[in-house]
Design a protein around this nucleic acid. Structure first.
Lengths: 175, 175
DNA sequence: TTCGATGCAAATGGTTTGCATGCTT
DNA sequence: AAGCATGCAAACCATTTGCATCGAA
């Protein structure tokens, strides 16, 4: 995203806060700016804190969470759960995103043809009277390599012990 | 599910554990049985513990989590995140499920034609070399009633305070 | 000046883990 | 008997909250 569009978006986002009666603090400016400058990546709370602190070192983690909650309640931010033990955040843009991740090795792929897929999904929800909000869909699967490795078929018990988790976190579920 | 199919499934699930070298303990039997007897509902860890303890009061919460992790790592159980502050669990069946929930009022609808949708989604992932695992997709949207109420357009600030969350939990994100 | 917003640190609570013991194989 | 599985309780750690203070309007 070019600088021009970023500052334009920042003003747009801040304006949405202002019009609803919320105050425009420097912390909120910095957090919104950080989110918009990192549109491609899904930051988690800690990463967002560290980046924001480069702009304003006084920002604390509580403000990060409170701002995230505020923006989420206004539909200005989505939460993304990649089953890592914490959440990530994204500023929704006009399109939706479709990710597939491998439950064995963790590899994640961004699916193409988002507009086509978005139209399909909107039609599904529309048939029930729902209008979908911009969001990212996460689908769990197995990548070709892991299938060829026989991840699910081969016994997990090798040499007397449970085989180590290839994803490095062995089914952690803490969110 | 009739009794016959349940005990059949239990044996199937326990057999999958055994064939991979895991021991068949009474706790695992009870937990698997509890999950299968409650196929429609998505139990969380505490609910699963309470139900399992009706069969075997000695079962502890740690065993619940360890069994869940084991089954999940074997692809025998999915985690469901309904943004409640904890996870729920489901035993995957052959088909996938597609839910739309209203981000304003929380209403959830189970979409029809699962087989058609499943075929579409599988094709999307297959194009990138992934094979999808059975799972439930959650899509966030706005229902017709809430759109007509103008949820997103009206200012959230009414009478000097933040309007109460219509979904009752106002953006909690703790998982 | 008012009172919403923040930083700090403590609290929360779902989930994980260390360790002695139990039980399947 | 060997060693995986369990119960218990303590530890973890992302997120939330109380409170004194700051600062936008």
């Amino acid at each position: 995203m070019q600088e021009g569009r970023i500052s334009e978006s920042i003003e747009d986002y801040l304006g949405r806060l202002k019009s609803r009666g919320f105050r425009l603090t420097n912390q909120r400016r910095v957090i919104v700016e950080t989110l918009l400058r990192n549109l491609g990546t899904h930051l988690n709370a800690r990463e967002l804190l560290e980046l924001a602190q480069q702009e304003d070192p006084s920002i604390g983690i509580a403000t990060i969470y409170r701002t995230i909650e505020l923006m989420n309640s206004l539909g200005m931010l989505n939460m993304v759960n990649l089953e890592e033990g914490f959440l990530r955040f994204e500023v929704p843009d006009e399109r939706m995103h479709f990710h597939v991740f491998c439950r064995s090795c963790g590899k994640t792929v961004h699916l193409p043809d988002e507009d086509t897929k978005m139209a399909d999904v909107r039609k599904w929800a529309g048939a029930e009277g729902f209008e979908l909000l911009p969001q990212t869909f996460e689908m769990a699967g197995l990548c070709r390599e892991c299938r060829e490795d026989g991840v699910l078929e081969e016994p997990l018990l090798v040499g007397g012990g449970r085989r180590r988790c290839r994803r490095g976190r062995c089914g952690r579920m803490k969110q």
